[in-house]
C-alpha cells in the first residue's frame, strides 16, 4: 500500500477567520499571509501591534489576530512611532501601499527612517492607487496609463517615480532595506525571508527596516493575473531592481 503524504494548508493563527478582501491575482494576500506565518513561527502574536494604512489593506485590522491600529492616510510611521516609544519591547509593524508611504506619507517615512525608529515597514509597491480605482501613484512608471494619467505618465508634467529603497537606504537610521517581489514561488520565499530579517532587526533594536514588495494589481492594471505578473516582470523589475539596498549587519561584517 503506497503511502501518500498529505499536504496540509493550515490557516495561520495570527489571522482571524475573516476572509481577505483583496482582488483575485493581488499580491497583498501573499504578503499578508507570509507576515502572519512569520508571526506564528516566531511566536510573536501576543506581543505584536500592527499599524494598517489607508489603501487596499485598510481593513487589515479585521484579518489579523494581534492588536491592530488603523492610521490616517500616510501617517502609519508616526502612529507606529507613538506605539513603539510607549512599548519598546513589543513588535510593531506598519503595512503600507505606495500612495500612503511614498506620496502623502513621505515626510513620515523619511523621518521615521532617519530617526532609526525601531519598526518594521512592509511596503506594497504596485505602481498605482488601488482602493480608489487606479489613479497615478508616486511609483507609477513613466508612460504608465492610469485613470489620472490617461495618456501615460508624462514625466514632463507629473515628474518621475520614486525609488523608495534607494532613497531611504541613504539615511543613517535605516538598518535594513530590501526590494523583493512575489511573481514566482522562489521570490515569494525570498520575500518572506526578507520580512523575517526585518522583524529580527527590530528585535535586535537595530533601527528602521523596510521591505518593499513589488506587487501586481491586475484589477487596476487591466490585466488578467498571469498577464499582471508578466507586466510586473517586464516593466517594474527593470525600473525597480530587486535586492538588498541597506543592511547594517552586512556592512559591518564586510
Amino acid at each position: 500500500m503506497a503511502e501518500t503524504e498529505e499536504l496540509k494548508v493550515v490557516r495561520p493563527h495570527a489571522l482571524t477567520d475573516v476572509p481577505f478582501s483583496y482582488c483575485p491575482g493581488c499580491g497583498h494576500g501573499i504578503v499578508s499571509r507570509a507576515l502572519a506565518e512569520l508571526i506564528d513561527e516566531m511566536g510573536l502574536e501576543g506581543d505584536t501591534i500592527g499599524v494598517c494604512p489607508v489603501g487596499c489593506s485598510v481593513t487589515m485590522y479585521d484579518f489579523f489576530s494581534c492588536d491592530m491600529v488603523e492610521a490616517a492616510h500616510g501617517r502609519a510611521p508616526a502612529v507606529a512611532t507613538g506605539i513603539k516609544r510607549v512599548l519598546p519591547d513589543k513588535f510593531v509593524f506598519s503595512y503600507q501601499g505606495d500612495g500612503d508611504l511614498a506620496s502623502i506619507g513621505m515626510a513620515e517615512t523619511v523621518h521615521a527612517a532617519t530617526r532609526g525608529e525601531n519598526i518594521t515597514v512592509i511596503f506594497i509597491n504596485n505602481a498605482i492607487y488601488g482602493m480608489t480605482g487606479g489613479q497615478m501613484a508616486p511609483t507609477s512608471l513613466p508612460g504608465q496609463v492610469t485613470q489620472t494619467s490617461p495618456y501615460g505618465r508624462d514625466v514632463k508634467v507629473a515628474g518621475y517615480p520614486i525609488r523608495v529603497c534607494e532613497l531611504v537606504s541613504q539615511l543613517d537610521g535605516t538598518a535594513f532595506a530590501q526590494r523583493v517581489t512575489v511573481d514566482t514561488p522562489a521570490h515569494v520565499n525570498q520575500m518572506k525571508k526578507a520580512i523575517k530579517k526585518g522583524i529580527e532587526y527590530q528585535q535586535q533594536k537595530l533601527g528602521y527596516s523596510i521591505i518593499e514588495v513589488l506587487s501586481p494589481c491586475s484589477t487596476n492594471w487591466g490585466l488578467d493575473p498571469v498577464g499582471a505578473m508578466k507586466w510586473l516582470r517586464e516593466n517594474m523589475i527593470p525600473y525597480y531592481p530587486l535586492g538588498v539596498y541597506k543592511d547594517v549587519k552586512a556592512n559591518k561584517e564586510a
Binding site: A72, G82, L87
Partner: peptide, 16 residues
C-alpha cells in the same frame, strides 16, 4: 517632523 506627524504619534501612544 511636522504637526501632522506629532498628533499621529500621539494617536499611536494613546492607543498603546
Amino acid at each position: 517632523e511636522s504637526e501632522v506627524a506629532a498628533i499621529n504619534m500621539v494617536y499611536g501612544a494613546s492607543s498603546a
